[in-house]
Design a protein around this nucleic acid. Structure first.
Length: 423
RNA sequence: GGAGAGGUGGCUGAGUGGCUGAAAGCGGCACCCUGCUAAGGUGUUAUACUGGUAACGGUAUCGAGGGUUCGAAUCCCUCUCUCUCCGCCA
């Protein structure tokens, strides 16, 4: 959620920035500013009534001591009239606040100046490419090789639960676990504190991170307990910092979390969901940083380098995209997408998305820090995947097909306990 | 799941209807002192919104939300979390 203060201070700047997303927010922003004026004047009137009421109460206390019952009666009569008036102002106040809120949440975050122009994914700008892939052999798509080598049982999972819930078997399971450990260890060494969050969250938490209202359709819901299966560990991890006041010296906060992620992915179909491309349950390791505003773009670069290093250690061909205005997520100011190359499908698969949300999340979270001027200000929050497992697994299974075996990247050896998978 | 006890400021902890935004202690900050010296003294020390150039004001906030009352940290209701005992259990 955008800070209303910034809207008020410089509405045209916000409008200008939002144009990059292809939206004209003029009407909404003007409406918000108008409503905000109403809110303040209503509040001032209410405050005056309440002040009068408070004074009456104090008078009565004095009168009661003097046993002046007649005047008490008069004061009470005055108060009851004002009380009614205050109720009107209060309900008006709530009404206006709700209206402001419902307008404010319509506005997406303001794109950073580095965000490329453009409205579709074709306008995303490739800013980096690393690695190469050369093979004269025909590459078997991961879903075939995984079944052939009994690493993943898609059908079995589909029978137990449904499609999109694969069973990892034997070396497939070990590879998965090895990857998780590799990611977590690498993140830990870079100073991220490891966290295992709850895998279900309550309504309030889902609301805080913006899954509801609006996107509840993406989550699995447990009706009896009114809990949601997390679509990403970002939800519980971010909520750790709900309504927190941090000290400057506590920043930056760096944490990394492993969790399974659950997504209903209603409406997905065809080759998009083939094999490991898109699952209802998948594993992901996430990195999150909370920092002071002045440093957030340095932090973003640091996180970008961090994720790059992981992919380099795995030896996978990948590229980094700077998402254009139209493709940028609702809450983000600047996002780098990481895509690994899938030789079996001859396409790029997104494995990470690293974003700076500036104060968009911390505003809703009321996540503040005590700045050097001794004033509370909103922190900046950033997160990224490091990494989403299934597509990395898919890329490995395809990229490393060598003759009659799959080679395990060296960085993983100490985590998997084996160096190859024979056909 | 059953029974009970609780949730007060950065922390400990007073406070059962009115001068309590909240005693006291600890901690923090500022200044002072310098032969009680790993000490002493004085002052200050919440957040949000809002009026004012400022000085200084106003309103709200004692787990959350309602209610009673002229007036609620204090009484009532609902929810929530923590603790103790019992039950169950990996």
């Amino acid at each position: 959620m955008l800070e209303i203060k910034k809207l008020r201070e410089n509405p045209s700047k916000v409008i200008e920035k939002l144009k990059k997303r292809g939206i004209d927010a003029t009407a909404t922003i003007n409406k918000i500013i108008e409503l905000e004026k109403n809110r303040i004047s209503n509040q001032q009137q209410l405050d005056f009534v309440l002040e009068t009421l408070n004074n009456i109460a104090k008078n009565i206390a004095v009168l009661a001591r003097d046993k002046n019952f007649k005047n008490i009666k008069d004061e009470k009569d005055k108060a009851s009239v004002l009380k009614e008036k205050s109720k009107e102002f209060i309900s008006k106040s709530k009404e206006i606040e709700n209206e402001i809120y419902s307008e404010l949440i319509k506005l997406p975050n303001t794109p950073h100046s580095l965000v490329p122009d453009g409205l579709t994914e074709n306008d995303n700008k490739e800013i980096y490419r690393w690695g190469n892939f050369n093979s004269s052999n025909k590459i078997i798509p991961h879903w075939d090789i995984a079944e052939k080598l009994n690493l993943i049982d898609f059908k079995g999972g589909a029978e137990i639960t449904g499609s999109g819930f694969p069973i990892y078997v034997g070396k497939g399971a070990k590879l998965q676990r090895g990857l998780i450990n590799f990611f977590l260890e690498f993140n830990s060494h870079a100073g991220y504190q490891e966290i295992i969050p709850p895998f279900f969250v309550n309504e309030k938490s889902a609301f805080n991170t913006g899954q509801i209202p609006d996107k509840e359709g993406m989550m699995y819901h447990i009706q009896d307990d009114n809990l949601f299966a997390i679509p990403t560990s970002e939800v519980p991890v971010t909520n750790i910092y709900n309504n927190k006041k941090l000290k400057l010296k506590e920043l930056p906060i760096k944490c990394t979390a492993y969790s399974p992620c659950f997504r209903r992915e209603a409406g997905s179909y065809g080759k998009e969901v083939r094999g490991l491309n898109r699952l209802h349950q998948f594993d992901k390791v996430e990195i999150v940083q909370i920092c002071e505003p002045a440093k957030s773009y340095d932090v973003l670069e640091e996180m970008k380098e961090h994720v790059s290093s992981l992919l380099k250690l795995l030896g996978l061909k990948f590229r980094i995209l700077n998402l254009c205005g139209g493709d940028l997520g609702f809450t983000s100011c600047l996002t780098y997408d990481f895509e690994v190359f899938s030789p079996g499908q001859n396409k790029w698969l997104e494995v990470s998305s690293v974003s700076n949300f500036e104060s968009f999340q911390s505003n809703r979270l009321k996540l503040r820090y005590n700045s050097s001027e001794k004033k509370n200000e909103y922190c900046h929050t950033l997160n990224g995947s490091s990494l989403a497992l299934p597509r990395v697994m898919a890329a490995i299974l395809e990229h490393y097909q060598m003759g009659d075996k799959i080679i395990i990247p060296e960085a993983l050896h100490k985590f998997t306990g084996f160096t190859e998978i024979k056909f």
